[in-house]
């Protein structure tokens, strides 16, 4: 694994997951999972519902706690140390399926909150950056609205901008387009493609195989808490190595 990553990404590894297991009570959601994401790489994670995709990426910024194994993010170990966790969270942005914007704050305030309170950026500077980011996700005119007044696609783009406002080194996406109406999916994916082209390290849980084909360096296929298969998109789509991946692909591409 690690050797692969070194070959693909010469600048070094960003995320290193080694032999990680995760239980929810008696239920083992992740079974000895290992994965290594190099700096600047884009990973797409797919697999059937309940296979542990969300759980895996939520371990990376400690929204879930792993019981065994080891996770390193940019050289910092993800462990119980609060300072380390806060340091990692400053470097790792996350975008959720359900946007999770703060409804009591305007779009601009949503974007400025963490830079001002976590990075201690001056308000003026934070606002400037926030406005630039809104322009980048193509909704500069919505700055003073509240999240509840935006469409789903707009909200998700605000959520992406909010994560970017912290100038993260890694972006995690957990099914960012699954809650969107079809006509809004593209506007969000376009923003993500652009982000990828600018060289951001990304781990994206998605079933948008078109996005995976254009952007991904590596597809990770999970099933029942295991990483069943990893590979370059062209190999994975053309000739999946396992029956489980073949079945999954036929289901999501079949209709």
């Amino acid at each position: 694994m690690t050797d692969d990553a070194a070959k693909r990404a010469p600048q070094g590894t960003m995320i290193e997951i080694q032999g990680v297991s995760k239980w929810f009570g008696d239920f083992q959601a992740l079974k000895n999972v290992s994965l290594s994401v190099g700096k600047g790489e884009k990973f797409v994670v797919c697999g059937p519902s309940g296979s542990g995709k969300s759980t895996m990426i939520r371990l990376i910024n400690r929204l879930e706690r792993h019981e065994s194994g080891r996770i390193m993010v940019d050289g910092i170990e993800v462990a119980d140390d609060v300072k380390a966790i806060e340091a990692i969270r400053r470097e790792v942005g996350m975008v959720f399926q359900s946007f999770n914007l703060f409804p009591h704050l305007t779009v601009l305030e949503n974007l400025m909150l963490a830079p001002v309170w976590v990075r201690k950026a001056p308000k003026k500077e934070a606002e400037e950056i926030a406005r630039q980011l809104l322009a980048r996700v193509r909704i500069p005119e919505q700055a003073d609205k509240y999240p509840g007044q935006l469409s789903g696609g707009q909200q998700q783009r605000v959520a992406i901008a909010r994560a970017l406002a912290m100038r993260p080194k890694v972006m995690l996406f957990d099914e960012p387009t699954s809650a969107l109406d079809p006509e809004m999916i593209k506007e969000v994916l376009d923003v993500m493609v652009e982000l990828a082209q600018e060289g951001m390290t990304m781990v994206v849980v998605t079933h948008e195989m078109g996005f995976a084909r254009t952007v991904a360096d590596c597809i990770v296929f999970m099933d029942q808490g295991e990483i069943v298969e990893t590979g370059a998109p062209k190999d994975f789509f053309a000739a999946p190595k396992t029956d489980r991946a073949r079945l999954f692909l036929s289901q999501i591409l079949g209709h």
Binding site: L63, M94, V118, A159
Partner: peptide
């Protein structure tokens, strides 16, 4: 809401 705030490092 908690998770988004946590993920931002607050």
């Amino acid at each position: 809401q908690y998770e988004a705030a946590e993920a931002l490092g607050l």
